[in-house]
Design a protein around this nucleic acid. Sequence first.
RNA 1: GGCGAGGUAGCCAAGUGGCCUAAGGCGGCGGUCUGCAAAAUCGCUAUCCGCCGGUUCAAAUCCGGCCCUCGCCUCCA
Length: 473
Amino acid sequence: MKNTLLIYNSLTRKKEVFQSRCSGEVSMYVCGLTTQDHLHLGHAKAFVTFDVIRRTLEYFGNKVTYLTNFTDIDDKIIAKAKNLGEHPQFLAERYIESYFEDVKALNIKPASFYPRASAHLPEIIEMVEVLMNKGFAYEVGGDVYFRVREFPAYGALSGQSLDELKSGARIEPNETKEDALDFALWKSAKPSEPYWNSPWGPGRPGWHIECSAMNLKYLGMGFDIHGGGHDLLFPHHENEIAQSEAYSGQTPYARYFMHAGLFNLRESKMSKSVGNVISLKKVMEIYDPMVVRITLLKSHYSSPMDFYPELLDEGAEALLKLKDFYYHFKMMINQGSNAEHTEDQGIIKTLDSFVTRFQEHLADDFNYAGSLGMLFQLLNDLNQIKGGSKLILGKAMEEIVLALEILGLKVEEDKEVRKIIEMILSYRQDIRKNGKYDEADQIRSSLMDLGLIIQDSPYGTRFYRNTKRNNIR
RNA sequence: GGCGAGGUAGCCAAGUGGCCUAAGGCGGCGGUCUGCAAAAUCGCUAUCCGCCGGUUCAAAUCCGGCCCUCGCCUCCA
């Protein structure tokens, strides 16, 4: 693609022209899950965002290496496992499984690798040792801390000086640290806690070091895009930069930092600690997972999103519109003629304009909300045409399918079940021809009770699954 | 206190100097089409982009001031 791709880079707080480390290849890392619970809508927002970013980069002709991690060593996991009388690794494993179920339902493309913190202890320990040798870290009673004052660029990402950070400090006083802002690279194990052996005694890695260690191992310094939720900007990403650049002596750690806006529930961020979480699995019991996806796609990735009661219903209606068009248009093509049609030239023009605008929005900092708007605009335009040649209508369909693919929206489902329903509908069509409307309406109503939408049209009867399960009567 | 984001129709939301007398989604009202239903379609639903000034031939978009909302600074996607 010849589009110049712009990316808002949190490092410079500006949109920049994207240039990857190697032309045609993009390496990206997305801070993944701390495996302590099921996913909620906030996770979905971040993960869907970076999935579309990845798909867009691929669409623009890049080969993308996409990493997302599991932080499966963590204080909360340990605490929760202890509560349940379960081994922390088992607990982590359950949530990893749950994660895979959810991201699959959301049609998030698989990552190239899913590195786990627990599988990278040697790399982590090596990093900490080097940081100590270079004077960037110190040990106190089995704990190792990063010495933030030794790293002059500390605070660059969050736009804060050390003193500013300190004055806002809600940091627990800790006598053992040289500076309140120093953060843990290694934590000594308390009795009965799981541990790994290290030069500083039994313990476990601190929170931030695992991302650095895995990134440096798989992607190397200066990889292209580092993503995550906006809540990770400080301290997590700030600390990652400090420890990675201090360790390697090179800069930058990552060329572009990108942050997805947070999902808020009634004015407070949806996070574990506040407890106002909407479980993704619960939402997906009620709505088609694609409802979640299209809802998240309706606003800019970097904007925060507020939850309100109608939010998902609106997405459900929007998805229905997409599905209805898809099946309607398919029938129209099937019954189209190969002959040229008076509308053909107009359709070509409409398509060209759509493709241009769709791409322009994506190329401008992945404005998928704008692109989705263009797609709906195209649907409205195509609904107005009286017909077209099979060839041109087919081309339009190809563009739509491609657009849906980039946005990761699946509208077609279960081919097997479709055959059975087609048989039923063909019977219904016969009796309709004979004027037996009461029975035909009865069949339609029964199918709708099963969660199907049935639409009679001059092209035949189309059907697809409803997007909201409690619409099922 | 510091840093950041934002205020666009009934709701959500894109647009950030002229293509804007402002996309798109949801909703509402009226018409067309239809065996019915639904979908679709047509018309109407912001003469205006938080407020006040300024710059400019031209501003929702730039500058200054004010008001308000949200997030981060503590574990979090």
